[in-house]
Amino acid sequence: MIRKVILSFALISGTFISLETSAQVSTGQLDGRRNIINTAVPFLRITPDARSGAMGDVGVAISPDANSIYWNLSKLPFADSKAGISATYTPWLKELVNDVFLANVSGYVKLDEFQAIGASLRYFSLGTINFRDFDNTNLGDFRPREFAIDAGYARKLSEHFSVGLTGRYIYSNLAGGQTSGGVVIRPGKAFAADISAFYTKDYEKDNGTANKLNLGMSISNIGTKISYTSSAQNKDFLPTNLALGGAYTFALDESNQLTFALDINKLLVPTPDSNGNYKTKSALEGMFSSFGDAPGGFKEELQELMFSVGSEYWYNQMFAVRAGYFYENKNKGNRKYFTAGIGIKYDIYGLNFSYLVPSGSGTQRNPLSNTLRFSVTFDLGGSKNDENRTGF
């Protein structure tokens, strides 16, 4: 029980929320010190599906599927199927606890050739915590949880280009009315939005197949700051994120397709400074200042970029093999890992599996290390062009 309490409190206070944070930074140069950007509700940045999870967490520009509402809603008008549903279960910290997980259900419907709508529910459970005070008095058990409900609309503006808008409600209840320093910890609530754009173009080949270029952009979690207390000074930033991505699919022949993808991400959140004044900025001010507020200057700004590369091979649109790599600078979190997975497709049904392996010594231990996660997918309403489908 004691081990479970310690792990659970560390999970909440050290990893998943930033009610109060501090960082050792220099006011001039970064000087090789860690200066990690802190946000509340970071579960919003956990990859929700096994397909992208097997490709190094790329997703902004790969072919549209039922999980596009998370990555880039504007892809949906170009989906092959008229509708789709996906459900994913992701164990979290499996090597330490067995009741922490992320569950995600998402889907879409194409209203016509030009329009589509999507929706999703993400639910993050942090297991059961037994609260105790400094005198070891039992304060009862509680199940911290967070969720986000999304709904969005996307539309083609031309034969090759589309845009999308997503609305989001966020709920985070991590302490269940407990007190800290006489302050009552309450559930955090916020509203946010995503804006996205997508470009796609086919390049016909002499053998009757076509290569495909996809480009995508998304700014996610643009919204209000969130607080777990009644104090306005304790409001934290949402993980607002800018994502740029590209993917190119080679149609090797009628049965074999190979895709390479790259995503670049940057949190649009102020970089911590030595005196903590960054937290006084508004959400909008924080977004714009995030491009030039790093204490280490332009060099540190470049270190805040995160890179994902992934590949996906399809045989006869029935079997897929995927691999990828994720990189984050050592001063900004030091997450580095390889991913791999497979996909199986039969008729309207699909299964995706992914596995994560940490890379290099001294890297940040990943909560998904050596964890198998899976997604179940359903393509509904028929397909306009089954033979050209490049993923699910």
Rank of each mutant, 00 (worst) to 15 (best):
L157R: 06
Y325D: 05
S218W: 00
E95M: 13
L268T: 04
Y70N: 07
F250D: 06
F319K: 05
F9M: 13
T371A: 14
T88S: 15
S180P: 01
E312G: 00
I195C: 04
P239Y: 02
A50I: 00
Y349F: 15
I170K: 04
T271N: 15
T390Q: 13
K332T: 10
N173P: 14
A294F: 05
N265M: 11
F43M: 11
Y355N: 14
S86N: 08
R51Y: 01
S86R: 05
N104T: 10
Y346K: 03
D80Q: 14
A87T: 08
N138V: 11
A243W: 03
S13I: 07
V357D: 09
L7A: 05
S125W: 05
G296V: 01
L356R: 11
N385W: 04
V58L: 07
K235G: 10
A294H: 06
A116F: 03
E301F: 07
E301T: 09
L368T: 06
G297P: 02
F319S: 07
G360W: 07
F101P: 10
L238A: 04
P295Y: 02
D263Y: 10
S13A: 12
N234Y: 06
E20P: 04
Y315N: 09
A192L: 04
F161K: 10
N352D: 14
L305N: 12
G28E: 14
N265Q: 14
Y337M: 06
F326V: 10
S106P: 07
E20I: 06
S290K: 02
N67M: 09
L111R: 05
N370R: 09
A243M: 09
G223D: 07
N207K: 08
V269C: 06
Q257E: 01
V183W: 00
S162Q: 01
L242S: 02
K201Q: 15
L252R: 10
D141N: 14
R122S: 12
K345N: 08
F307L: 10
G391T: 07
F131K: 06
K212H: 01
A83K: 00
A243K: 15
K82Y: 03
R373K: 14
